[in-house]
């Protein structure tokens, strides 16, 4: 009996709590919707005038209400995305952002909720707000700062070519996903990037791998000797990254350097090496590629066929394979590439 009474009380209590919450949420929703309407109104208003304000032909209606600030911020952000590439307008937008949003953002960086800090960091990155760099760096290794926030701060530093990114990364003990390192390195200017490549050994392996790839991403021939150096590494991952990187550049000083990789143990390495022959168009490797047509791995076979067909007499070589090769896999893959060659990759 007692148990029933307790459960009755519990469910009654829950019911009351839920209803109170419900009423609270309904009221909040009504206000939020009103706020949205106001914000929408201000957005329209700012959209009409933003162009003139940016061109300096009109005074900005300074936002002083929350709905106005948010509307202004959104309009400015969208406009900025559209104006990418136009440096004059971009710098004028950046000025406006500094002028209007600085104080708001400074406060928000210290906000207790993760999503608000994250949004702010994204906006600071977008508007390249130099004046807030100190505040960003200050929260970089705070206890509550999440990995994504730290990465976002690094990105802000990279975009603004701030040298602190080097010292932070050298001393950083956490390891971030490799995608982000590559993303950061691609953003750096040459001077800052070279600071990293000159001291490549000081960094953990993941960063070293990303640096090798980033050298290729930059597409600059001056990095080729540095990348080639890793082709002789004992560590297969270094060789794979170097091949990947050279594939981005599409060139290397001495093609013979990749020959060992064509017979490497890991299929990724064989594939990357086979792929690199395509832009090189080097006849010396045709026999190696023909061997790779019978590789155990599909990726290696298809890449080898792709590289063969790109050679001067590639079509004839593959036709020969189709008719005479003993291995069915080799014939199949050769056939597929011959058909693909017809019209781009589509043929009627």
């Amino acid at each position: 009996m007692n148990g029933i009474f307790i459960i009755f009380q519990v469910s009654l209590l829950l019911f009351i709590v839920l209803n109170v919450l419900f009423i609270f949420l309904v009221i909040r929703k009504v206000y939020a919707n009103k706020f949205q309407i106001q914000k929408q109104h201000w957005k329209q208003e700012y959209l009409k005038h933003i162009d003139l304000v940016i061109r300096g032909k009109e005074e900005l209606l300074f936002p002083d209400k929350l709905s106005m600030i948010e509307a202004f911020e959104e309009v400015l952000a969208r406009y900025y995305s559209l104006m990418k590439g136009n440096t004059d307008i971009a710098s004028r937008i950046e000025e406006l952002a500094e002028q209007v949003l600085h104080n708001d953002y400074k406060k928000k960086l210290k906000h207790g909720r993760w999503s608000i800090r994250m949004n702010t960091l994204h906006r600071i990155e977008k508007f390249r707000m130099v004046s807030l760099i100190e505040d960003c760096v200050a929260i970089y290794d705070k206890e509550r700062t999440s990995e994504l926030e730290s990465l976002q701060i690094l990105r802000i530093l990279a975009n603004l070519q701030d040298e602190r990114i080097y010292t932070i990364l050298v001393n950083e003990e956490r390891e971030f996903p490799s995608f982000y390192y590559l993303d950061l390195f691609v953003r750096l200017n040459e001077r800052l990037f070279n600071q990293f490549t000159d001291a490549v050994k000081d960094f953990p392996l993941t960063i070293q791998f990303s640096l090798i790839e980033a050298m290729g991403e930059r597409g600059d021939y001056s990095y080729i000797p540095k990348i080639e150096f890793y082709l002789r590494s004992k560590n297969a991952e270094f060789r794979i990254r170097a091949l990947k990187s050279l594939n981005k550049v599409g060139y290397l000083t001495d093609a013979e350097k990749i020959r060992p990789s064509l017979n490497a143990e890991s299929w990724q390495e064989r594939m990357m090496a086979a792929k690199l022959i395509k832009p090189l168009r080097d006849k010396r490797f045709i026999d190696d590629l023909l061997i790779l047509l019978s590789d155990d791995n599909w990726w290696v076979r298809t890449t080898a066929a792709e590289s063969i067909i790109a050679q001067q007499n590639g079509v004839e070589i593959l036709e020969d394979v189709v008719h005479t090769h003993v291995d069915r896999f080799a014939r199949d893959i050769a056939n597929e590439w011959l058909l693909r060659k017809g019209k781009k990759s589509v043929f009627r």
């Binding site: 993760w114 949004n119 994204h122 995608f179 590559l182």
Partner: peptide, 22 residues
């Protein structure tokens, strides 16, 4: 969910959507 309340649904993905690294 609360941690991500009102997280911007556009900004974090704008660059990612154009990145060749995805």
């Amino acid at each position: 969910l609360r941690k991500e309340y009102k997280l911007d649904q556009y900004e974090p993905y704008e660059e990612l959507a154009q990145s060749s690294l995805t």
